[in-house]
Amino acid sequence: MMSLGTKVRQYREAKRLSQDDLALRLDVTQSTISNIESDKSIPNSMLLKKIADELEVDINDLLNDSVNNIMSNNDFSDHAVAAVNQYNPVFNMQSLELIESILKTRNR
C-alpha cells in the first residue's frame, strides 16, 4: 500500500514538476511539499484538493489504496468512512469545497 506522500511524489514526477514548481503553483513552501511527500505531515482538506487539482488526479487516487471510491451513490460508503477516519486530521467533514469536488468527480 502506498502512502499519500508517495502518491503525491509519483504524480508530481509524472507531470515533470519539481517540488519547487508544485509549491509555487500551490502557494506553499517547497518544505511543505517535501514534508507531505516524506509523510512528515498530512495536508489539510483544502490543500489536498489543490494538490489533486494541480496534479490533475482524483482525490480518491491520493487516498488509501483500500478505498476505491469515497462516494457511492452520492453517499459515503462504510469502508470509505473508516479510511477517511484514518486521515482524521486531513478532513474537516464540513469542508463544502472538498465534498463538492468529490461529488463532481464522482458524477463525471
Rank of each mutant, 00 (worst) to 15 (best):
N74A: 13
V81N: 07
S18C: 04
P89H: 09
M2R: 15
S101G: 08
D75H: 11
S95N: 15
A52T: 04
S31P: 00
D53M: 09
S34R: 12
I70D: 02
V67M: 14
I33T: 07
A14T: 09
R106Y: 14
T32A: 12
N74F: 14
A83S: 14
E54D: 07
N92G: 02
S95P: 00
I59V: 15
V84M: 15
E100Y: 06
I36R: 03
V8Y: 06
E54M: 05
M1V: 14
R16A: 11
N74W: 12
H79M: 13
L4D: 06
N44C: 05
I33D: 01
A82P: 01
D53C: 04
S95C: 15
V67Q: 08
F91M: 08
V28E: 02
M93L: 15
I33S: 03
S95M: 07
M1L: 13
N74T: 06
D21M: 03
F76M: 15
L55V: 05
E100L: 10
S34N: 14
E100Q: 12
D78V: 11
K15P: 00
I33F: 07
N60H: 05
Q19L: 08
Y87R: 10
S18W: 05
K50T: 04
D58V: 01
I42E: 10
F76G: 02
S41Q: 09
A82F: 12
S77T: 15
D65Q: 08
